[in-house]
Design a binder for these strands. Structure first.
Lengths: 167, 167
DNA sequence: ACACCTTGTTCACCGCGGCGAAACAAGGCC
DNA sequence: GGCCTTGTTTCGCCGCGGTGAACAAGGTGT
């Protein structure tokens, strides 16, 4: 929910993270026209029925556009209409994390997923996780560390505590 | 443009064909809530500015979403009203890419598409892709490399990450 | 408190290989 | 003869995977 045009900066933030948003356009202003499917607007004063209808439509679109990330048949990591390609090792790690999206995946499982036979050296896994972080950030995903337990994949606009992400 | 709920049958027709549509919802009725990005609605009586805004937004979404390039009966590659002609090899490559627009096509598939019998040398494919890139750029298309997997055809105003194309 | 260890993050660097493109040569079509 | 298309060679960039090291942060023992 964004007031327009007062909260323009918040709007661009939501756009870049791919978060669904509804603009409250002041009576005389014009709405910004965007080709983004996750953006809609209503004019104030707000009609109750219109508001409900537009919100549910937005939610439905967000669902369709993929609330969860997924790895498609070609090995691309897709999320909310955006995508990136991943090198083999990071692809395997991402697959394991996507599998259990939102839950912790132990370092052991991740190591087995990426190196079925070998055991990776001390910080090989760490380095690849670091690289994976950088790569998935632009599409709105983030890896969170759970110390001595493992890692957890989630969206960057929800860190689980209502706080925001580093950087 | 569809009146709702009078023209419900026309609406379902448009939905199934994937045509963008704008519903004119009568004063007391409720709009049907749909998760379809190519559907929107206004309440009658219609506010002129709102109408224009929603129409342009729908058009923008249709561009981004649905519109796919195609190869017409004469072998021309058409996209958004523009077109170019392609030499035989590049035509075959483009056809394979258009077929799976937005998805990865492996180097192997492309090689088979362009050289049904022979096996092209390592760089033949690369060179033709490079030439194809230059040719399709002016009509708003771009070929994206997915390292170690293949190539992917997409529009040049959407690189999948919300960022811009090189150059 | 403190020192010490463990765990995790990131950086610089190396070797390798996939990939891009310029340049060149050869053949075909108008 | 000029132009276009096709294929090959060659050069070089850059991304990937892995290692070691520096650093930060949390945990434990005394």
């Amino acid at each position: 929910m964004v007031r327009w045009p007062e909260e323009e900066d918040r709007l661009v933030a939501l756009r870049t993270t791919g978060t669904p948003r509804l603009l409250f356009v002041e009576a005389e202003g014009d709405p910004p026209s965007s080709g983004d499917c996750l953006e809609d607007w209503v004019r104030v004063p707000v009609d109750e029925r219109e508001l409900r209808s537009r919100v549910t439509a937005l939610v439905a679109r967000a669902e369709r556009h993929g609330r969860r990330p997924e790895i498609d048949g070609d090995g691309l990591l897709r999320f909310r209409g955006r995508w990136i390609d991943l090198p083999p090792v990071e692809h395997a790690l991402a697959a394991a994390l996507v599998d259990r999206f939102g839950a912790v995946v132990g370092r052991e499982s991740l190591a087995r997923a990426a190196w079925p036979q070998d055991r990776p050296s001390r910080n090989a896994l760490d380095v690849h996780m670091s690289r994976l972080r950088r790569r998935i950030a632009p599409i709105g995903l983030g890896v969170r560390t759970v110390r001595s337990r493992g890692y957890l994949l989630q969206t960057r606009d929800d860190d689980g505590n209502g706080e925001h992400w580093p950087k």
